[in-house]
Design a binder for these strands. Sequence first.
RNA 1: GAACUAAGCUGUGCAAUCGCGUGAUAGUUGAUCGAAAGAUUUUAUCAUGAGGAAAGUCCGGGCUUCGCAGGGCAGGAUAACGGAUAACGUCCGCCGAAGGCAACUUCAGGGAGAGUGCAACAGAAAUAAACCGCCGUAUUAUUAAGAUGUGGCAAGGAUGGAAAGGCGAGGUAAGAGCUCACCCCGCGCUCUGGCGACUUAGCGCGGCUGUAAACCCUAUCCGAAGCAACACCCACUUGGGAUUUGUUUGCCCGACGUAUAAUCCCACGGGUGGCACGAACGCAGCGGCAACGCUGCGUCCAGAUAGAUGAUUGCAGUCGAAAAUGCUUCGCAUUAUCGACCUGAAAAUGCUCCGCAUUUUCGGAACACAGAACCCGGCUUACAGGCUUAAUUCCACC
RNA 2: GCGGACGUGGUGGAAUGGCAGACACGAUGGUCUUAGGAGCCAUUGGGAAACCGUGUGGGUUCAAGUCCCACCGUCCGCA
Length: 124
Amino acid sequence: MKYTAIGENHLFLKVYSRGKKFIGHYVAVYVLIDYKADKFMKTNPKKKRINRIGITATKKLGGAVVRNRVKRIVREAYRLYDKSHKLKTGFLIVLKVHDSAVTAKTGDVYGELDTAMKKLGMVL
RNA sequence: GAACUAAGCUGUGCAAUCGCGUGAUAGUUGAUCGAAAGAUUUUAUCAUGAGGAAAGUCCGGGCUUCGCAGGGCAGGAUAACGGAUAACGUCCGCCGAAGGCAACUUCAGGGAGAGUGCAACAGAAAUAAACCGCCGUAUUAUUAAGAUGUGGCAAGGAUGGAAAGGCGAGGUAAGAGCUCACCCCGCGCUCUGGCGACUUAGCGCGGCUGUAAACCCUAUCCGAAGCAACACCCACUUGGGAUUUGUUUGCCCGACGUAUAAUCCCACGGGUGGCACGAACGCAGCGGCAACGCUGCGUCCAGAUAGAUGAUUGCAGUCGAAAAUGCUUCGCAUUAUCGACCUGAAAAUGCUCCGCAUUUUCGGAACACAGAACCCGGCUUACAGGCUUAAUUCCACC
RNA sequence: GCGGACGUGGUGGAAUGGCAGACACGAUGGUCUUAGGAGCCAUUGGGAAACCGUGUGGGUUCAAGUCCCACCGUCCGCA
């Protein structure tokens, strides 16, 4: 399944300022209701609401190799979680990567996503 | 065998499950839009998917646009010579200088006899000259040394990074390239060798501070901007600025056309192309000392757009740590044997240490540096470990 | 992608190629006060010394914070 990514900077800022958040050890999760979800639903041929996700890794973490690697790990953890659990749809989700996630494995991030999603009430 | 020098190669592999980008094929007994053509998306299968530096952006080029008739100035870059190349500040060869026993390495390596500037402190004096000093002479005084004035000199002293060649002889009142011999350095001419830088030998002239990575001079080269360039399509029409002549590449010469009240310029969204056949790669042969070039055959090898290679394991390799086992050099102890006046010879067993090999266990993503973004040629920087080739010096043996 | 600036004591920030650390803040000690503050005075880069010190490494120069080259880091501008 393909994931629609957030590209616009103003959306990131909106989610940071207004969204519900959970700060974890490896990642910080920000969630906000997507107002354009219905619009996307019309264009989407499957006629489904979808979550748009954005993963941020700052320059502090390291070079391009490290940043790409961390983003891959976080994306893989989200993919596995989305596959095994049923999540609410029609949201903007921003995952902010912390320093400790550089040496983390997918399983660690998966466990943290579990607690985060339950706390934020995203699990159906 | 050790040390050192130079050049080059490599940059974990295989398998399973889930997943991602791109391309091809198939499916409407997948979906949406559409009258249809078709478009978007999805599913399945197959193929394919980061580097030697992809990095830094330090040079050079292709490509594209700007207005390409042309010239100059400003600005920038380079600096022995010959070649390679699309081009270069790169590379190869060679010359000179410096370093190293040597292999070899390093060098912004033109001009200070065109001009201007600068050289702190010290020192008498810093690009010209006299503090102490040496010598002649006048005056004065005296036993004498001396003191003062005047003239000559640059040998000696002290300072400094640098004080106007070095050393010896002649010469002189004292001295001085003032003269001479030898040596050093620079320039010019002729000659030997070389395409050339340069070099060999000789003759003549000269003895000049350093600094051009200070300004500068000489020679050669460079129009500017960049794929967010640029072209096309769709949507939307809004905002900002300039001007009395206007436009054009920093400026000037020059060139060209336009308008008489409006004219001109700039900017903002999305998509497609640009964009993967190229100064391409591999192999072989030929030419060249080499950089490199030519010919033939074969191959098609990433094109993302918040940015695709990952995750979970298993096996193998490598690295590190720990343990066990085996082998071995040296050392120590014990025992027996042989020989002898004495030093001794040689074997077995045990212990210790070092090294090597094998096995087991463990490990921070253990296994570096690091991720294409229009494309090439270089340079520079980062890099765990492994491998290869060539050369030099030293040691040992034959 | 293009192109520009800056790294100096604990901090800010000076310094024509010529004795490195002006000046200010801070810190420490002294003075004054019953005590504290303010004021005044002194010290303040490291090291026992030699010497080493201007982000790092080279070079030019008699001499480099300054000039040149290559790196490292920080910050800014244009699109």
